[in-house]
Amino acid sequence: MNTMLMKKLAPFIFGLFSLMVFSQSKTILSSEIRWKAYKTLKTESLSHFGTVNLKEGNLIFKGNDLAGGSFVMDMKTIDAADMNEDPKMKKMLENHLKSDDFFDTNKFPTASFQIKSVKKINSNGYNYQVAGPLTVKGISKNISFPVKVFQSNAVYTLTSAQFTFNRKNYGLKYNIFEDMLISNEVEINVTVKAQ
């Protein structure tokens, strides 16, 4: 290989080597993803809440600093925990959420979020601002929210601030009359542990 070509390739090779040496992918050990949605009148008595399971994911670190990550959620596991006292209504609501009125889990069994950018912050106990595409029903929109990341022994814990997404941006719409009674904003809280 001639010297000129080596000089041109050197920065690329060094960058790739640095990425391989200094970036470490940590596998998700456990997770809790909580959701909450309201009727148009935003009161606790007119809300539903529950969880959805993480199918797979990772966090990427450079040294001890968060640098990226990805999460795939199993939308078939969406749970309406507020209805636990009424199993029949709980099942009806969960089936409704999985239907093509909302998440259409037969066609779109997963949703995902990728951390594409990370900015260090110091705000209300949160030390990073993460941003990237949230993909639901095949539709991707960029979102951003603060997270707190800390390490204990070899385990990293990431906890998000509560953030929201607009369901209509992802085609989560019901019939026009019922849809008018549902708030557009869905609240999300995420905690994951990785090693």
Score class of each variant (00 low, 15 high):
69 G>R: 03
30 S>H: 13
35 W>H: 06
53 N>C: 07
73 M>E: 02
61 F>P: 00
13 I>K: 10
9 L>R: 05
18 S>C: 13
75 M>I: 03
10 A>K: 10
65 D>S: 14
28 I>E: 02
14 F>M: 12
19 L>W: 12
30 S>L: 05
45 S>Q: 10
35 W>E: 03
25 S>T: 11
39 K>L: 08
71 F>R: 00
18 S>G: 13
72 V>D: 00
44 E>N: 13
44 E>D: 14
58 N>C: 09
53 N>P: 01
47 S>H: 04
41 L>N: 10
54 L>D: 00
63 G>I: 03
17 F>M: 14
45 S>F: 10
8 K>H: 08
24 Q>H: 15
24 Q>G: 07
61 F>Y: 11
11 P>T: 05
58 N>Q: 12
27 T>D: 09
55 K>P: 02
52 V>D: 02
10 A>V: 08
43 T>Q: 10
49 F>G: 08
14 F>I: 14
58 N>Y: 09
36 K>T: 08
6 M>I: 15
61 F>C: 06
59 L>H: 02
58 N>G: 10
18 S>E: 12
37 A>V: 07
52 V>I: 13
17 F>C: 12
33 I>Q: 02
16 L>S: 15
49 F>C: 04
13 I>T: 12
62 K>L: 13
45 S>Y: 09
14 F>A: 14
7 K>Y: 13
44 E>Q: 12
29 L>S: 15
26 K>W: 01
38 Y>L: 03
34 R>S: 10
11 P>L: 07
23 S>H: 12
63 G>K: 04
59 L>D: 04
75 M>A: 01
67 A>D: 08
42 K>E: 12
57 G>I: 01
6 M>T: 13
23 S>C: 15
46 L>T: 11
59 L>Q: 06
11 P>A: 07
29 L>E: 15
13 I>P: 05
12 F>I: 15
51 T>S: 12
25 S>P: 01
75 M>Q: 05
26 K>Y: 08
28 I>S: 03
71 F>L: 12
10 A>E: 11
41 L>R: 08
24 Q>S: 14
46 L>R: 06
7 K>S: 10
41 L>M: 11
